[in-house]
Amino acid sequence: MTTPAVDPSVLSGPSDPPGGAGRAARPGAASVRAAGLVLAVCSLPWALTSLVAGIDIGYTTDIVCGVFQLGIWALLITMIRTRATGTSRPARAMLAVEAVLLTLASTASVLLLLGEPIASSTVTVVLDVFWPVSMLGMAVIGIKVAVAGRWRGILRAWPVVAETWVLVVVPSLALLGPGAASWVSGLHLIAGYATLGVLLAARPDLAMRA
């Protein structure tokens, strides 16, 4: 029997017209809640490491950053499935672009864990550039989520708080030095991404439209 081709409309977001395939494909509350828990749990190791040991402690930082990226993947996938940035083609495209950037950044994180000489290879160095670039992309997405208004209540605003991490920490590193920046990073991760995860877990309905 021939398998029918998959209609792209099955990936439609939760605000699609009633009866559309996208309506049936929207994530359930349990899925959104699980993603929130993953984001919250995966944000804490890096936050606590920054507060206790500093913002850059070599191999340990590589590990906790890799764990953190798992949380970002959970968040990004939820945003894609709920079309958090909007239903237009450009709004969906920006999430697809971020997925590519995060893939490259995650690849660098894996390579960094493989030890020398892979960690210091040209490929790893180049791919590692996409780590801050992907975080900058998340900052742009956070603003777009607030503007689009598909996520409601506190979840409409909190991605802006969480995803300004790179816009807050990088300048603090340059202006205040690594000691102070470690505290800024750790506290921002807790107040931002970890809290966003808790909010998604507690109120998944705010990320879903009937």
Rank of each mutant, 00 (worst) to 15 (best):
Thr103Trp: 01
Thr103Pro: 05
Thr103Asn: 02
Leu104Met: 14
Leu104Gln: 10
Leu104Pro: 03
Leu104Tyr: 10
Ala105Gln: 01
Ala105Lys: 00
Ser106Ile: 05
Thr107Lys: 00
Thr107Cys: 08
Thr107Pro: 03
Thr107Val: 11
Ala108Trp: 06
Ser109Ile: 13
Val110Lys: 06
Val110Cys: 12
Val110Trp: 04
Leu111Tyr: 11
Leu111Trp: 08
Leu111Gly: 11
Leu113Ser: 02
Leu113Tyr: 04
Leu113Val: 12
Glu116Tyr: 14
Glu116Gln: 15
Ala119Arg: 12
Ser120Gly: 13
Ser120Glu: 12
Ser120Arg: 14
Ser121Pro: 00
Ser121Gln: 06
Ser121Leu: 10
Thr122Met: 12
Thr122Gln: 15
Val123Leu: 15
Thr124Leu: 02
Thr124Ser: 00
Thr124Val: 05
Thr124Met: 07
Val126Pro: 07
Val126Lys: 06
Val126Gln: 03
Val126Ile: 15
Val129His: 11
Val129Cys: 09
Trp131Val: 04
Pro132Ala: 05
Pro132Asn: 00
Val133Glu: 08
Val133Ala: 13
Met135Arg: 03
Leu136Ile: 09
Leu136Met: 14
Leu136Cys: 08
Gly137Asp: 08
Met138Pro: 00
Met138Glu: 09
Met138Ser: 13
Ala139His: 11
Ala139Lys: 07
Ile141Gln: 03
Ile141Val: 14
Ile141Asn: 01
Gly142Trp: 01
Gly142Tyr: 04
Gly142Thr: 06
Ile143Pro: 03
Ile143Phe: 14
Ile143Glu: 11
Lys144Ser: 15
Lys144Gly: 11
Lys144Phe: 11
Val145Asn: 09
Val145Gly: 09
Ala146Glu: 02
Ala146Arg: 14
Ala146Thr: 12
Ala146Ile: 11
Val147Asp: 12
Ala148Pro: 08
Ala148Thr: 03
Arg150Leu: 04
Trp151Glu: 04
Trp151Leu: 07
Arg152Cys: 04
Gly153Ala: 02
Ile154Ser: 06
Arg156Lys: 13
Arg156Met: 08
Arg156Ile: 09
Arg156Glu: 06
Ala157Thr: 08
Ala157His: 13
Trp158Ala: 05
Trp158Gly: 11
Pro159Ala: 07
Pro159Ile: 00
Val160Glu: 02
Val160Leu: 13
Val160Thr: 10
Val161Gln: 03
Val161Cys: 10
Val161Tyr: 07
Glu163Asn: 15
Glu163Phe: 15
Trp165Asn: 02
Trp165Phe: 15
Val166Ala: 14
Leu167Glu: 00
Leu167Pro: 02
Val168Gln: 09
Val169Glu: 14
Val170His: 09
Val170Tyr: 10
Pro171Ser: 10
Ser172Gln: 10
Leu173Trp: 07
Leu173Tyr: 11
Ala174Tyr: 04
Leu176Gln: 15
Pro178Thr: 08
Gly179Val: 05
Gly179Thr: 15
Ala181Asp: 07
Ala181Leu: 03
Ala181Pro: 00
